[in-house]
């Protein structure tokens, strides 16, 4: 049974990674990151259950809080870009190069 959890979290992580790397729309990329974090949380919870270790669960809680903070910062930045009129397409952001 435990192999299934590993498989789902691995798949979830891969999907998240693919979204971040392939999608050009910034909101989707943010979603991708959150997916990757969620996959890690899943694996952690599974590990905590196996080792019956409350510390890991506390870690999951901390991670969730941090992910939330990350999302806040990400959204505010994306909104700032939107308001500056350059749309949500990550491809537009190539003024800095070389």
């Amino acid at each position: 049974m435990s192999g299934a959890v590993w498989a789902t979290s691995g798949a979830l992580f891969a999907v998240g990674l693919a979204t971040v790397v392939l999608r050009r729309q910034m909101l989707a990329m943010l979603l991708g990151v959150e997916l990757m974090v969620a996959a890690a949380d899943l694996a952690l919870v599974r590990g905590a259950c196996r080792f019956m270790d409350p510390e890991a669960l506390a870690a999951v809680a901390v991670v969730l809080a941090v992910a939330a903070a990350e999302a806040v910062v990400g959204l505010s930045l994306i909104l700032r870009v939107l308001r500056s009129g350059r749309g949500l397409d990550a491809g537009e952001l190539s003024e800095l190069r070389g």
Partner: peptide, 17 residues
């Protein structure tokens, strides 16, 4: 190398992965 760095975000992330 510097021409390769075209500054696009997705490419950067791809390279990171």
């Amino acid at each position: 190398f510097s021409d390769a760095a075209r500054g696009r975000l997705n490419e950067a992330l791809w390279w990171m992965a």
